[in-house]
Design a protein around this nucleic acid. Structure first.
Length: 925
RNA sequence: GGGCGGUUAGCUCAGCGGCCCAGAGCGCUUGCCUUACAAGCAAGAAGUCGGAGGUUCGAAUCCUCCACCGCCCACCA
C-alpha cells in the first residue's frame, strides 16, 4: 500500500530542541530569507498564458504614508497569490511605485528647495547645493532645474519612501516578485504612457481645445472630474439690485429693477446674462430685455431658462464667466459674451472697459469711467478680497444701475446684509480653494460618446463583491466631461507634442506635431520634433514643445500594459494580458479602475482583467474612515513588531471583500493565539513516537472525511476570492475539531502499548490532519506554517517549504474545478493525500464521538470531578440508534473519558443527544 | 434628490439559494497548572436577529414601506 512508500524516514521531533514558546518575530527574518533563497515568489517567464495567474497589484503612492489600510488590502492580494500558487498556477505578482503627482512634487520641492521649469537645460549629475552656489543663490533661494533633473531628484526622494513600504511588505511576507519592480516615472513607464497617447491620437480619441476647464487656482492646473470633490462650505446670499435697461432708457410699463440673490458677488463684473424660469410671472415681462449690472453698468440679456429654479433665492439669477458649470452651459447655448475676470492664479486680472455700442463685445459698459475706476480697485486681488471690495461697492447708491438715469435719488444695490448659509462647493481633492472654471487650452480623451461601450466592457469583468460593479456603472453613467489629461505641472510624464510657429511666431495649436515611437520617452521641452532642429525652438517658422504633463492617472491606468511590456515584448504581452485579477479599494473605482478599463478598451478593445477584487476600508472604532488627517491612523510597522506578521495578516484576512472593518486590536491577539496553537499542536503531533500506519479506525476515517469536507469548502471559497470565509471554517475546524476533540480522543491510543494497529492509525491520522491543516493555513499565516512544516514534513515530502507544496485536494474538488491548470505533483505527498483514506462506516462517527465526549465533560463538571480524573464507570443514555452510532468509536470515547468501558442505556429520546452518567474512582486515602 | 452597502449577545463579526432549540471570538461567571498549549482546557450566563406590514405550514433569511449609520453620485444662482 502506498502508505508505506514515503521516501524520507519519519522521525519524531525531539521536544527539547524546540523552545517552549514560539517567538514568531525572531523566526520571521529566517523564513523571509529562506523564501528568497527558494524563490517562492518568482514565476516562470516561459509559461503558457493558460497557466499564468496575473495580478495587477496597485502601485502605492510612494510619497504617501503607510496606513493599516495598506496592510489590509495588500494582504488580501497575497492570500490569493499564495493560494493560487499552491493550486499550481504560475502566479505573476509584480509591484510598482506610483511616484507621479503632486505629493511627490511637493516633497521634492521642499526637500531640495528646487522648482522645475520647462526650457531649462538639463545638467548631468546635478548636485543641487553646488549648483545653487554656482548660480549665486543663497540656501533659502529656490533653484530652477529642468524637468529631467527634477525627475532624478524625485527618484532620490521616493527611494526612501519606497524603502519603507518595501520593508513593511517584505516583513509581512507578501510574496511579491521583486524582479518585476517598476516606478511610474521610470523610463519604461514614461515610454508606455506616451505610447498610449500616440495610440489614442492615431485612433482619434484625443483632442485639444480651449474650453472653460475646472481649474485649481492654488496648484494652477486643470483638474479632471474624478479629482473633484464637493465640500460643505460657509457662504452668504447677497441680494443685489440690477437695473432694467429699457426702463432706465424711459420705456414705460417696465419695472425699473429686479433683485438677484448670489453667493458670488465678486463675479458681478464678469456678469454676461440674467435668467429666470420661463413660467415665472414675476419676470416674464423681462425676457428679451436687457439688464444693467450695478457698479459696472454692463448691458446683458435677460432670457428664460428651464434650469432656473423659481424657489431658489429670488428666482432670477446672474450668469458670469464662469461661476459654475451652469454658467458654462448657458454661455455656450445662448452665445453670451465672454468676460473672464479670474486669472489662473485666482486673482482678478486687469481689464479695460469700453463705451457700449450695439456691437461691442466683452468689457463694455454704459458708464466705462465709473466701471473702470471700480474695477481698478479689484485687479490683482485674490477673489476673497474682491468679494469684500464689491460688497462695499454695492453699499454705495452711486453704484446702483439706476444711477445711470439721474432722475432723483437712488438706493444702494445691496438690499440687505448678506445672509450666511452653508452650501456645497467644488474643490480639487488636494486643494483648499474652490475650483474655478477658467478658459484654457487642454488635452482631452473623448469619453462622452463611449459610455455604452465602457458599461458593456465593465460588465464583462467579474466584480467581487458583485455590487461593486454598480459603483463603476454609476460613475460611468454619470460622466459629464471628457477626460482632461493635461496638467500644468512640472513633474510628470510630458505630453509628447510640439506646435509649429508661423512666420509671426504665433502658435498653431491645430497642426500639432506628435513624437514618433523611436523617440520615446521624450520631453518636448528638451528635444525638437521630427524634422526640426533644436535651434528652431521658439523662433518664427520653428516650434515650441508642449509644456504640460499628463494627469497621473494617465500613466497609472497603464499598469497592466507596463507589466506586460506593451509595444516592447509581444510574447510577454501575449502571456500576461489581459490579466486575471485587479485587487483594489472601492474609493478608486472611479479613477484607477475606471481609467484602466478606458485605456484597455481604447487600446486593445479588451477588458484589462477578468476579475476585480474590491477590499473595504479600515474604519476607526467610531466607524469613520481612518485617516491620518483625522489624527487617528495607526502606523503598521509597530503592529508587526508587537504581534508578528502572521497575526497582522490574520487580522487582515478577517475582513470580507468590500466590507469596511472597524479597527479592533483584539483581532491581532486572536491571530497571535492561533499562531501559538499551531505551534503547540504541531509539536504534539510530531512528538508522537509510534510509526504511522494505515488509517483503519472508524474515528480516524471519520475525522479525515470531515477534514475533506473542510478542504472542499475552503477551496470553494478561495476560488471565489472569499478568503475570509475560508479562514473562518479552516480555523474553526482546526481549533474545535482537531485540537480540542480529535487530539483528545486519540491521545491515549496514539501511545497504546496494546493496540499497535490502532496506534499506527492514530499517528498517521494526526500527521495527515496536521499536514493538511498546515497547507490550508499557509496563505494566511505563512511563517508559523512553514516553521512547523520544516520540522518533519519538509524532508519527508520533498517540499522544502509549505508554500511550494500543493494545495490539498479531495476527489470532489478535483472533479468540480474547471481550471486547466494541472494540480501540482503530489507524489511525495502520498502519505498525506486525503483520497487514499477509506471512507468511514458512518459519516457521523466523528461528530458522534465529539458529542459523547462533550457529554462526559459536562457530567464531570457537574459532578465536580476533575476533567482528567479516571472514571470507575461511564454510562450513556441516548436513543438506541444514537447508541449504535456510538459503538464504533466507543473505545476512543472511553479512553478520552478516563473510563475502562462504557455502559449503554437506551431510551426513547429522539434528539440524537447523549447524556453521560459518570462515577468517580474512589479516592484512596 | 439618485445609487450602493450595513443594522444579529456588552464589543467585533459569521449565518441571509427559508424549516437544524439563533452562532463564533473577545469580554463576563464558575471550575481546572489534565506531561502540546494557562496566550491553555472545560462548563455556563447572555440576543423581542433596527421597526412595521406582507408571502409561506414555517422568515434573521424572500417582498414592501420606514428609521438610523456609512460610502459614492447629483445638487453649487
Amino acid at each position: 500500500m502506498s502508505m508505506t512508500s514515503a521516501k524520507a524516514e519519519v522521525k519524531p521531533i525531539d521536544p527539547k530542541m524546540l523552545p517552549r514558546r514560539f517567538n514568531i518575530k525572531e523566526r520571521e527574518s529566517h523564513w523571509r530569507r529562506i523564501w528568497d533563497d527558494l524563490g517562492i515568489a518568482r514565476h516562470d517567464h516561459s509559461a503558457e498564458r493558460s497557466c499564468n495567474f496575473v495580478i495587477d497589484s496597485p502601485p502605492p503612492t510612494a510619497s504617501g504614508s503607510l496606513h493599516p489600510g495598506h496592510v489590509f488590502s495588500y494582504t488580501h492580494q497575497d492570500l490569493i497569490a499564495r493560494y493560487r500558487r499552491m493550486k499550481g498556477w504560475n502566479v505573476v505578482y509584480p509591484m510598482g511605485w506610483d511616484d507621479n503627482g503632486l505629493p511627490t512634487e511637493r516633497r521634492v520641492q521642499n526637500y531640495f528647495n528646487v522648482r522645475a521649469e520647462p526650457n531649462v537645460p538639463y545638467i548631468p549629475e546635478l548636485n543641487v547645493d553646488q549648483q545653487r552656489k554656482a548660480a549665486g543663490l543663497s540656501k533659502n533661494q529656490t533653484l530652477i532645474v529642468s524637468r529631467e533633473n527634477f525627475i532624478e531628484l524625485c527618484h532620490i526622494v521616493t527611494a526612501e519612501d519606497e524603502k519603507a513600504y518595501k520593508e513593511l511588505f517584505y516583513r509581512l511576507g507578501f510574496s511579491i516578485d521583486w524582479d518585476e519592480e517598476y516606478a511610474t516615472i521610470d523610463d519604461r513607464c514614461r515610454r508606455i504612457s506616451q505610447r498610449s497617447f500616440l495610440d489614442l491620437e492615431t485612433k482619434g480619441h484625443v483632442y485639444t481645445s480651449e474650453l472653460p476647464t475646472m481649474w485649481d487656482v492654488d496648484f494652477q492646473t486643470a483638474v479632471a472630474q474624478a479629482e473633484v470633490e464637493d465640500r460643505l462650505t460657509p457662504g452668504a446670499y447677497h441680494d443685489i439690485e440690477f437695473g432694467v435697461y429699457e426702463a432706465i432708457k424711459g420705456e414705460a410699463g417696465m419695472p425699473q429693477s429686479f433683485v438677484i440673490s448670489t453667493t458670488r458677488p465678486e463675479l458681478i463684473p464678469a456678469c454676461v446674462g440674467v435668467t429666470a424660469h420661463p413660467d415665472d410671472d414675476r419676470y416674464k415681462s423681462l425676457f428679451g430685455k436687457y439688464a444693467v449690472t450695478p457698479g459696472f453698468f454692463a448691458k446683458v440679456p435677460i432670457f428664460p431658462s428651464e434650469k432656473a429654479d423659481p424657489e431658489k433665492g429670488t428666482g432670477i439669477l446672474m450668469l458670469c464667466t464662469f461661476g459654475d458649470e451652469n454658467d458654462v452651459e448657458w454661455w455656450r447655448e445662448h452665445g453670451l459674451d465672454l468676460r473672464p475676470m479670474v486669472g489662473r492664479d485666482g486673482r482678478a486680472t486687469a481689464r479695460n472697459f469700453v463705451e457700449y455700442h450695439a456691437d461691442t463685445e466683452g468689457w463694455s459698459s454704459l458708464n466705462p469711467e465709473q466701471a473702470q475706476s471700480n474695477y481698478d480697485c479689484l485687479a490683482g486681488q485674490r477673489l476673497k478680497s474682491v468679494r469684500q471690495s464689491i460688497v462695499e461697492m454695492m453699499r454705495q447708491p452711486a453704484n446702483s444701475a439706476l444711477a445711470l438715469n439721474d432722475s432723483g435719488s437712488v438706493s444702494a444695490p445691496l438690499q440687505s446684509e448678506p445672509k450666511p448659509i452653508e452650501h456645497v462647493v467644488r474643490y480639487y481633492e488636494k486643494g483648499n480653494t474652490p475650483i474655478e472654471y477658467i478658459p484654457s487650452r487642454q488635452w482631452f480623451v473623448r469619453l462622452m460618446d463611449k459610455k455604452p461601450l465602457l458599461l458593456q466592457k465593465g460588465a464583462e469583468i467579474e466584480w467581487r463583491p458583485d455590487f461593486m460593479f454598480k459603483r463603476y456603472a454609476n460613475w460611468t453613467d454619470g460622466l459629464s466631461h471628457d477626460w482632461a489629461i493635461s496638467r500644468q505641472r512640472y513633474f510628470g510624464v510630458p505630453i509628447p507634442i510640439w506646435y509649429p510657429l508661423d512666420e509671426d511666431g504665433a502658435i498653431d495649436h491645430n497642426s500639432y506635431l506628435v513624437a514618433t515611437e523611436e523617440m520615446l520617452p521624450v520631453d518636448p521641452t528638451l528635444t525638437p520634433p521630427p524634422g526640426y532642429g533644436e535651434e528652431q525652438r521658439g523662433l518664427p517658422g520653428g516650434f515650441v514643445g508642449e509644456q504640460d504633463v499628463f494627469d497621473t492617472w494617465f500613466t497609472s491606468s497603464m499598469t497592466p500594459q507596463i507589466v506586460a511590456r506593451w509595444g516592447e515584448d509581444d510574447d510577454r504581452m501575449e502571456q500576461l494580458f489581459p490579466m486575471d485579477l485587479r485587487p483594489q479599494a472601492h474609493e478608486i473605482i472611479r479613477t484607477w479602475a475606471f481609467y484602466t478599463i478606458v485605456k484597455s478598451v481604447l487600446h486593445h478593445d479588451a477588458v484589462p482583467w477578468h476579475n476585480a477584487m474590491i477590499s473595504g476600508f479600515i474604519l476607526d472604532p467610531d466607524r469613520k474612515k481612518m485617516s491620518k488627517s483625522r489624527g487617528v491612523a495607526v502606523t503598521p510597522m509597530p503592529l508587526v513588531e508587537r504581534y508578528g506578521a502572521d497575526a497582522v495578516r490574520y487580522w487582515a484576512a478577517n475582513g470580507r471583500l468590500g466590507m469596511d472593518m472597524a479597527y479592533d486590536e483584539s483581532i491581532f491577539t486572536i491571530g497571535s493565539k492561533l499562531v501559538t496553537k499551531l505551534y503547540n499542536a504541531g509539536k504534539f503531533v510530531l512528538m508522537q513516537e509510534a510509526e504511522p500506519g494505515a488509517i483503519i479506525n472508524e474515528l480516524d476515517r471519520a475525522f479525515v472525511a470531515e477534514l475533506s469536507d473542510v478542504v472542499d469548502r475552503a477551496t470553494d471559497y478561495f476560488e471565489n476570492f472569499e478568503f475570509a470565509h475560508a479562514l473562518q471554517i479552516i480555523e474553526g475546524f482546526f481549533w474545535e475539531s482537531f485540537a480540542d476533540n480529535y487530539i483528545e480522543l486519540v491521545k491515549r491510543r496514539a501511545r497504546s502499548e496494546e493496540d499497535y494497529a490502532g496506534r499506527a492509525s492514530a499517528v498517521a491520522t494526526l500527521r495527515l490532519g496536521l499536514n493538511v491543516l498546515l497547507r490550508l493555513f499557509a496563505p494566511f499565516v505563512p511563517t508559523i506554517t512553514d516553521e512547523v512544516w520544516s520540522w518533519s514534513f519538509a524532508a519527508e515530502t520533498g517540499f522544502a517549504s509549505v508554500h511550494q507544496a500543493p494545495w490539498p485536494l479531495t476527489d470532489s474538488t478535483a472533479r468540480s474545478l474547471s481550471q486547466s491548470v494541472p494540480a501540482k505533483s503530489g507524489e511525495m505527498l502520498s502519505r498525506y493525500e486525503l483520497s487514499v483514506v477509506e471512507p468511514p462506516a458512518s459519516e457521523s462517527s466523528f461528530r458522534v464521538a465529539c458529542r459523547a465526549i462533550a457529554a462526559v465533560r459536562k457530567a464531570k463538571h457537574d459532578a465536580q470531578i476533575r476533567l482528567g480524573a479516571p472514571l470507575a464507570a461511564l454510562e450513556f443514555t441516548a436513543s438506541a440508534g444514537a447508541l449504535e452510532l456510538l459503538k464504533p468509536v466507543a473505545s476512543d470515547v472511553a479512553d478520552a473519558s478516563g473510563a475502562f468501558d462504557i455502559q449503554f442505556n437506551p431510551t426513547d429520546r429522539s434528539d440524537g443527544m447523549y447524556e453521560a452518567l459518570v462515577q468517580a474512582v474512589e479516592q484512596s486515602q
